[in-house]
Structure formats: C-alpha cells, structure tokens
C-alpha cells in the first residue's frame, strides 16, 4: 500500500494488535509515520484512532485490561521492548490531549515540569521555558505573568501552553489527540497554523474528527475504521482519489 523506499519512517507500527479485555480494538496495524511531516489519523468516533495514538507513547499501559501484541518502532527500537524505559519514550514522544489539561500551577511551572522532573538546572529551565513558549506562540501573551496560574489563560492559550509544556522536553515526535475539539474556531486556526510551523522541528501525529482540518494541515492521512487501518496515503492523494470505497464514503460524509 505504501512505498517504503521513498523515506524511512520515524516511528512505525508492525502488526500492532490491541485488546481491552476481550475487545479487539486494533487489528494488525502497520503504519509508518514520516519524519518532520504532519500525519493525520481520521475515522468515525470509536474507531480506535485515539487508542492507536496512545500506543505511540505507551499511554495505554495505564489502562487496566489492556493487552498489546506487535511492535511500535521508534527508528529501530521497539518501544514495547522490556528493556525500554517508558519515561524515556514519553520524553521523546510528547503528547497534547483533547481538552487542555494544565496543572493547577503557574504558567512557568507548567512548562518547567518535565525539565524539573529530570533534574535540569534552573538557568537551563528558564532558557527552555522561554524558548518553548516562543515556539508555541504564547510568549508575548504571557511573558509578563509567567507566575500567574495557568487557569487564568483562555482555552486556546491553555492548549498552546500544553503544547509548550510538551515542547520543553525537546521531543522528536508530538502526538496531538483532537487538540482543537474543545476550542473556538479562532483558537483552532491558530493551533493549526502552529502545527504547520512546528513540523519543521518535530514529527507530528494528529488525531482529528474534523476531515477539513486533516486536509488543511496534514501531509499524510490514515483512515481508520473499526480498528483497521483502511487506507494510508499522502493527504492530497487520498482526498482526491481514495482507493478504498469506505474511505470515499467517509470523506463524503456518509458515516461518522
């Protein structure tokens, strides 16, 4: 389905299967996520796209009854290998959630969190906090009130704070789980633009229920349906000539 010689994948799955208790949620998923590109995962709600996203930083480990078979390779390293330290994986693979979830701490402390946990020096933290906030296009709005509560920010600002917080870890990959679904159109537009900017620095994998959004910002799109990867292709290709009839139906709004 995909010509693997065209590029090496940054992170990819190999026959990935996932069960919640007896419920087979993901079935034989093989997908490459390319370096410094935006890849969108679309599909009707409940199709398993968020679950799949959470395989890339092992957040599914937290769910009781979750069983995983297959591999998720970050370059050559299977992140489910028992030798691998899960906190390392999550530092390299950042994540931003559906609803903004800043800690009940100051703006500064939110961004500094990952760095502090790893014991970085104060001067380095200061520097990286500023850089991350700038990268998330939030610096100008918050530079005078870094020590105010993160809850004083608007919803869109909070989500950009969460992006800054993830960027402070200097991740290679950023997972975005429907990051704009709780936001107004203006904040959404800003975050979409931000994604296009960020892909120069990190690989982005975004789950979205919004087909138009996938069209606007992604280079590749994966269509997932009932736990299967139905189609994976460059976005332009898929949106103009979908190969699978189910993709075509979904894109034309037949179900969802």
């Amino acid at each position: 389905m995909v010509n693997k010689t065209q590029k090496t994948a940054h992170i990819s799955t190999e026959n990935l299967n996932l069960w919640f208790d007896d419920n087979h949620v993901l079935k034989d998923i093989n997908i490459p996520i390319y370096d410094k590109k935006v890849t969108a995962m679309i599909g009707p709600s409940g199709c398993g796209k968020s679950t799949m996203l959470r395989c890339f930083n092992r957040m599914n480990d937290l769910i009781p009854g979750c069983k995983i078979k297959g591999k998720v390779n970050l370059y050559d390293q299977n992140i489910y290998d028992s030798k691998v330290d899960v906190t390392d994986v999550r530092t390299k693979v950042g994540m931003v959630f559906q609803r903004p979830n800043p800690f009940p701490k100051s703006i500064y402390k939110n961004v500094a969190y990952g760095l502090k946990v790893r014991g970085e020096k104060k001067a380095k933290i200061d520097e990286l906090v500023e850089k991350s906030l700038k990268d998330a296009w939030l610096w100008d709005e918050v530079k005078d009130r870094l020590h105010e509560s993160a809850f004083s920010l608007s919803g869109g600002q909070q989500q950009r704070l969460c992006i800054a917080r993830a960027l402070a870890n200097n991740p290679e990959i950023l997972l975005l789980d429907e990051p704009t679904s709780a936001l107004d159109p203006q904040s959404t537009a800003k975050i979409e633009e931000l994604c296009l900017e960020l892909k120069n620095k990190v690989t982005i994998l975004i789950v979205t229920h919004n087909i138009a959004q996938a069209g606007r910002i992604s280079d590749y799109t994966a269509f997932i349906f009932l736990g299967e990867l139905v189609e994976f292709a460059p976005t332009k290709e898929m949106f103009t000539v979908p190969k699978d009839s189910r993709t075509e139906q979904y894109l034309s709004g037949a179900f969802g």
Binding site: D85, T87, D88, V117, R118, G119
Partner: peptide, 8 residues
C-alpha cells in the same frame, strides 16, 4: 539521573 529517579 534516570537511575536516581527510578531509585527514588
């Protein structure tokens, strides 16, 4: 550092 974190 990682080891100290794990130990803690």
């Amino acid at each position: 550092m990682t080891n100290i974190r794990k130990l803690k």
